[in-house]
Design a protein around this nucleic acid. Structure first.
Length: 423
RNA sequence: GGAGAGGUGGCGGAGUGGUCGAUCGCGUCGGUCUCGAAAACCGAAGUAGGUGCAAGCCUACCGUGGGUUCGAAUCCCACCCUCUCCGCCA
């Protein structure tokens, strides 16, 4: 949600910010509605002042038993009451906010220009795609031998679901547990167990509503399955006024994530790369405005640490203007190299949302020594997607005979097993 | 799911139709006192919107949304949440 005051202060700059994302100008219409709102407020408040004064007189008149005077005043107050009812500032405010709530965040100046992913910029690469002495298989080809089961998943739930059994089920659990411990024990994050079902206000707070309702699953009682733990974690501060001493607040959660849009693109139909349900370790930071840029770098480094410790090949890219998500001012994607697929694929996305979500959530802090309140900054990042990490591990550490080497850091979670053998 | 009770300012807790944005207590902040601290005493302090150069003035907000009324924290309706008991259950 944008600050109408900033729009008013510089409408041209606001429209220019939208143009970077390829969105049409909106300042003029928002300001027109805000003008109507202010005019209606003036009328309403003037009428209320009159009504309040006359009401006081009515009360005084009745107290001294002057019913005739009271009745006369009642007739007089009617005009003010009608005038207050006729002016509808809340209608104009709702119309204004409907526009503002559907507009994406203003981008960081450092975000590269461009309207799609072709304009993304690779910042650095860790490791290099390895040469295999054999033709590396894709994860679903490897997985079959380990009981990666798409047929039964389809029977139980439909397409875009996967069933894992035995060592792969354990490997998924190992990845999640290990990542969670890494972030809580070494990166200063606090583990949180969150609801997987949330209400409208929560989904609105992080920006999924009102514009992207079709991307999430809705329950029959009006709740939503979370598309990411970012939603419940970030909304923990919704409506709160925090003390500076509580910041930064670093939260992490391992959760299932549910995405209804996952199948609509018709891409990645084979395998478990793009699913309606997947596990993810999420990182969320709530911090002071002046700290969010550094926090963004820190958070991304925490996610990178996961990939490095697993022994994966990865690179960091900064998303272009047009590819940056709705609520983000700046986003780094981490892409992992998949030898079987011979491609870089997204495994983490770390975004600085600045005060965009905080405004929607009304999440503020009280500056130490200062007066009043200011909006917090919020950041979120995957640390990392567990399902995709599983894919990357399978494809990266596969052997010629179809067995898979277990990354050292995961072995304590795998009962000490060093090599997974099919069958 | 059934029955009952209740949601008021950071917390506790008054207030049941007429200057109530709200008595009071605790906590917080500033001051007096003190070598310093405690105690005591004095004082300050909600959020948002409108208006003004400013001091200030005005409006709204007592779980949320409606309604009744000249006037609602107070009455009515719906919803949300909390607590107690019963039932059910991992």
């Amino acid at each position: 949600m944008h600050d109408i005051k900033l729009v008013r202060a510089n409408p041209a700059a606001f429209d220019a910010a939208l143009a970077r994302r390829g969105a049409p100008p909106a300042a003029a219409e928002a300001l027109r509605l805000d003008d109507l709102r202010i005019e209606a407020i003036r009328i309403t408040q003037a009428a209320q002042t009159t009504r309040n004064e006359l009401s006081r007189q009515i009360g005084a008149a009745m107290k001294r038993g002057d019913t005739q005077e009271a009745e006369r005043l009642k007739a007089e107050v009617k005009a003010a009451v009608d005038a207050a009812a006729a002016a509808t500032p809340e209608v104009h405010e709702a119309a204004r906010d409907a526009i503002l709530a559907a507009l994406p965040n203003v981008l960081d100046e450092a975000v590269p220009e461009g309207l799609d992913e072709t304009a993304n910029v690779v910042l650095h690469t860790h490791g290099a795609p390895a040469n295999f002495a054999f033709t590396p298989k894709q994860h679903f080809e490897l997985g079959e031998a380990f009981g990666m089961d798409f047929a039964n998943a389809a029977k139980l739930a439909g397409t875009r679901f996967t069933i894992l059994r035995g060592p792969l089920a354990r490997l998924e659990r190992a990845l999640g547990q290990w990542m969670l411990n890494l972030h809580t024990e070494q990166h200063g994050y606090t583990e949180v167990s969150v609801p997987l079902l949330v209400n409208d206000a929560t989904l609105y707070g992080t920006g999924q509503l009102p514009k992207f309702s079709e991307d999430s699953f809705r329950t029959t009682d009006g709740r939503w399955l979370i598309p990411t733990a970012e939603v419940p974690l970030t909304n923990l501060v919704r409506g709160e006024i925090l003390a500076e001493s509580a910041l930064p607040m670093r939260l992490t959660a391992l959760s299932a994530c549910f995405r209804s849009e996952a199948g609509s693109a018709g891409r990645d139909t084979r395998g478990m790369l793009r699913q309606h349900q997947f596990q993810k370790v999420e990182l969320v930071s709530i911090c002071l405005p002046q700290d969010s840029e550094a926090e963004h770098e820190r958070m991304t480094a925490c996610a990178e640490r996961v990939l490095t410790d697993l022994g994966l090949t990865w690179r960091r890219i900064v998303l272009s203007a047009g590819d940056t998500g709705f609520g983000a001012a700046k986003t780094y994607d981490l892409e992992v190299w998949l030898p079987g697929q011979q491609a870089w694929r997204e495994i983490s996305s770390c975004s600085n949302c600045r005060d965009f979500q905080a405004r929607r959530m009304d999440a503020r802090f009280r500056p130490a020594g200062g007066k009043g309140t200011e909006f917090l900054h919020t950041l979120n990042g995957s640390g990392v997607a567990v399902g995709r990490a599983l894919i990357a591990v399978l494809e990266t550490f596969q052997q010629a005979d179809g067995s898979v080497l277990v990354p050292e850091v995961l072995r304590p979670w795998m009962g000490g097993v060093e090599m997974l053998h099919p069958g």
